[in-house]
Design a protein around this nucleic acid. Sequence first.
DNA 1: CGAATCTAGTTGCGCACGCAACTATCACCG
DNA 2: CGGTGATAGTTGCGTGCGCAACTAGATTCG
Lengths: 158, 158
Amino acid sequence: MVRLVAVTNPKWLNPAEMKAWRGFVSTSSDLLNLIARDLESFGIDGGDYQLLAMLSEAPDQKLKMCDLAERLRLSRSGLTRRMDGVLKAKYVSQVRDSHDGRVVFAHLTKKGFDFIKKVAPHHLESVRSRMIDLLSPTEIHAFGSGFEKIAKNVKQSD
Amino acid sequence: MVRLVAVTNPKWLNPAEMKAWRGFVSTSSDLLNLIARDLESFGIDGGDYQLLAMLSEAPDQKLKMCDLAERLRLSRSGLTRRMDGVLKAKYVSQVRDSHDGRVVFAHLTKKGFDFIKKVAPHHLESVRSRMIDLLSPTEIHAFGSGFEKIAKNVKQSD
DNA sequence: CGAATCTAGTTGCGCACGCAACTATCACCG
DNA sequence: CGGTGATAGTTGCGTGCGCAACTAGATTCG
């Protein structure tokens, strides 16, 4: 990250701050990749899992494409492509809204629901063993409150 | 994430655990994207910045390609391509090792050093304002220790 | 020594994604 | 109404990356 900040003086990270930042940067991608990899043995990749999970939690198990895209942190076009797989697998169907001809709902099918119901416990176990169960209650709480603050700041930066 | 875990019984996340997990998943990519975006106004993308930063901290400001790839969480081929840009910009040069003809060192040039020295304070300010300064000392410490534990677990899973 | 194996790096190929452009629909307003 | 602009979704194109295959150089062992 380079020393020599002297000139434009925001003060350098102290050791604890540094450890938090570096830990976050280097570990978060590793962790997410590992959890995605765990899912692959059940025949689904991380992106598709998140998609089905989002739908499974939505009222009526359906969401407008653009809302779904936002929750998945995908662009609208990215989601269009993501949908190909889960549509072909019949895990999700698309329904045009009768009240607003622009919007299309992504709707979790019975097959999709059964599938994710089967996979979810393994995913949960993966999340627990690779992250949650490793952390103390204090750390759990700090992750929750910390990311909440960060998220709030992110949102107000659009 | 789907209810109905009943059958294969790892117990569901309690509210605090859930908040930690969801906060992490949804916020970490937002945060990283935002910080990368901050860098772009200085004419560099997040990937290239990390590359230069790694080299700037290495002894002699050089690293074997494969070590660099590992630290950047890139595949070897991914790094080969990443190098194109920073080589063309003359921020980095490549030197074949005289003792082992297979290895190539990526070496930060004077130009590259001057460049990152100029950008680093802004990056630091970005990291501070979007993450570090938002967190309490307790949270900073918990992020550090938490990610350390997770990282240890990740490494032993190869 | 020579053959099999390992390691470092590059190249071919495919995939997932974002951005910009386009179409279709809706909402606002003169 | 009809026109202007916003919004939802898809398609064309470029990019970044991983995997597999390949080359070149090192290491191990009979």
